[in-house]
Design a protein around this nucleic acid. Structure first.
Lengths: 247, 247
DNA sequence: CTCAGATGGTAATCCGGTTCTCCACACCGT
DNA sequence: ACGGTGTGGAGAACCGGATTACCATCTGAG
């Protein structure tokens, strides 16, 4: 587990999700002020549920834990749970978004260690693949474990509500698009870049999630994926930098 | 009654699947014979459940119907249901495999209308995409509707049991591999072809399933997919034949 | 101090899958 | 025709798990 609970970051945003937009200003401010203290407590509480769910997700390697488990783990009550989350689905969505956000940050950092655009993209693809892969390559921190474990949830989401999934992976997509554009050169058709970026992301993640590691190592599969994608996007294949497969 | 093995009759079929290996032949034959009639009825019954489930899957555009529904629709009883299928999951699996099989046949037929290997592959990708796409392009027969509607199930399967999914899509994979190899030319590395075929299939189907048709028509998306895949596989992009998009 | 709203604790409800019990009926050899 | 056997219909029962309802406390603001 990364850093469960501990101090809940009061991240401002009105996450629990209701009165946020619209409203009469002065009245609103008044209410808000009187609610400020409460908000802190509230966020702290919501965060506790989130942390508990995150732990459980990782432990179970999936989302098949009960709401009761979450409640127990968080040391709070069922009542409270439904006060902060409309349903289990919402909770999972929050966990998922959180995990994706963290994972995106991590990827961004890794990518910034490179300079050549093509190498950056390559790094992105390979790392993303590794962080989504099922197999046990005990190398990446907890956030990745979470992403991996959310696979079933992500799939369900893809089936029932693709748009929501898209929103959840928005930052990742933005990063990917940025890298793709850089690697292609700005002359490429923007719309086409966007579409191919989506394809690339989906291909990488789905393949990583769904591939049971029968044959070779994860890194080999990731290489294959990179080859496929680089060509698919129209980037000069793998340039320099740390490649290591045989052949 | 214990006649030790009379003349060893060729044991012949034993499909239903239990005592098949080491059983005592004569006894086995006796049982089988008495079961032969029953087998027909049994298959007929199982089929009725299957048909009902298929209908419901299409109607609901998903697998969120209850076992009760299936029972009612098939005009049989819950008891029977669990006599023929171990669980709802098994039923869905059967429906899925059936739908995939049918869809594969259809694709094979479509592909055989072309001659050039690259064009064939292109046709395969585009048609597969269309048959998996969410959007309403009311052109393909019912089997496709089923495949589309099984998307959520397929995803769940991908998450919980990728191997099983692989088995279910075995024929489709075989067809795809065949086409890919033909398009690449036989000199290509066989193992690499296999891996890329998997990537291709996953990419096409997942993208088609998960893409909500916001922007353009399905055919455009399919084109983009083909461009991506053909390059990814290392096939000379789109040769002649069929339509082309504006440059 | 008092009241409204937040919580805890817990029982109740709802759903749907799966199991179990009881019973009818058809078929079969005698 | 008769009892035995085996198949299958009707449902009730059981169960896990999400969601709600209810009631007693606690807490903070006015």
């Amino acid at each position: 587990m990364a850093q469960p609970s501990s101090s809940a970051q009061p991240s401002r945003s009105a996450q629990p999700g209701e009165t946020d937009a619209g409203g009469v200003d002065w009245r609103q401010r008044a209410v808000e002020r009187s609610l400020d203290a409460a908000r802190l407590r509230a966020e702290e509480r919501a965060q506790r549920f989130l942390d508990a769910a995150l732990q459980l997700t990782i432990e179970h390697q999936g989302t098949d834990f009960t709401v009761q488990d979450v409640v127990a783990r968080s040391g709070q009550s069922l009542r409270s749970f439904y006060q902060y989350f409309e349903s289990k689905q919402e909770l999972l969505l929050a966990v998922f978004e959180e995990a994706m956000r963290a994972s995106t940050e991590q990827l961004r950092a890794a990518v910034e260690a490179e300079t050549d655009p093509a190498v950056r993209l390559r790094r992105f693809v390979v790392d993303l693949y590794a962080s989504c892969a099922r197999n046990p390559d005990p190398d990446a921190p907890a956030t990745n474990a979470a992403v991996r474990a959310m696979a079933d949830f992500a799939f369900r989401l893809a089936a029932t509500d693709p748009d929501r999934l898209a929103r959840g992976t928005g930052e990742l997509y933005a990063l990917a698009l940025e890298l793709v554009r850089a690697a292609q050169g700005q002359e490429a058709d923007r719309a086409a870049s966007a579409r191919r970026t989506v394809i690339l992301l989906q291909a990488v993640m789905f393949n990583a999630f769904a591939t049971t590691g029968g044959r070779g190592r994860v890194s080999d599969a990731a290489e294959e994926m990179w080859t496929f994608c680089s060509q698919g996007i129209g980037v000069p294949a793998a340039p320099t930098a740390g490649r290591r497969r045989r052949a």
